[in-house]
Design a protein around this nucleic acid. Structure first.
Length: 161
DNA sequence: GCCAACGTTGGC
DNA sequence: GCCAACGTTGGC
């Protein structure tokens, strides 16, 4: 029996001072583990809903300007975030144990960098993006689902190199 | 640096 | 279960 898996679309936030789209592009095999997510809703999206080859918008938060800067793909589905039980890691969480992990991560692979980064300010001007989670006031979720339509609008405007 | 909008913790 | 206090995120 074949299981039909629907391709999904996501937005992942990262602070470029910590890990940027250029860092992703420079990573071994263009790939990195998306560690350090410590929010249950974000974890649940990663653990329960991300499929192989799902598409990702990469967003630079806490930036000048904050913007969607490129795309990636999910290249490994959820597995335990081992940084959570490393007491020397800044994302250490004593309640997460190897035998019963609290936190999960996925791997993503660089796909494209935008020649025209799509700043938060610009995205807010686009009526068709109304309702997008990223644009909601006070939105802090670092792993967000986006619709295909939202993804395509931003991809087209971003003009991947 | 400020502060609004969260999510988490823990007393009760 | 309620909610105040606290810590964090992230725009500006």
């Amino acid at each position: 029996m074949t299981v039909a898996t629907k391709l999904r679309y996501w937005l992942l936030k990262t602070e470029p001072e910590v890990f940027s789209i250029d860092d992703l592009k420079a990573s071994q095999d263009f790939t990195t583990c998306w560690d350090g997510v410590r929010n249950y809703q974000a974890r649940n999206f990663m653990r329960d809903q991300m499929h192989l080859d799902d598409r990702v918008l990469v967003y630079h938060s806490n930036s000048a300007p904050s913007a969607v800067v490129g795309t990636a793909r999910i290249c490994k589905t959820a597995y335990p975030d081992f940084t959570s039980w490393d007491c020397k890691n800044p994302h250490f969480d004593p309640k997460s144990k190897p035998e019963n992990p609290t936190w999960f991560m996925v791997d993503i692979r660089f796909e494209s960098k935008f020649s025209v980064p799509q700043s938060l300010f610009e995205l807010k001007q686009i009526p068709k993006l109304e309702g997008m989670e990223l644009l909601r006031k006070g939105s802090r979720l670092s792993v967000q689902p986006v619709t295909k339509r939202q993804f395509d609008i931003i991809l087209n405007l971003g003009k991947p190199m």
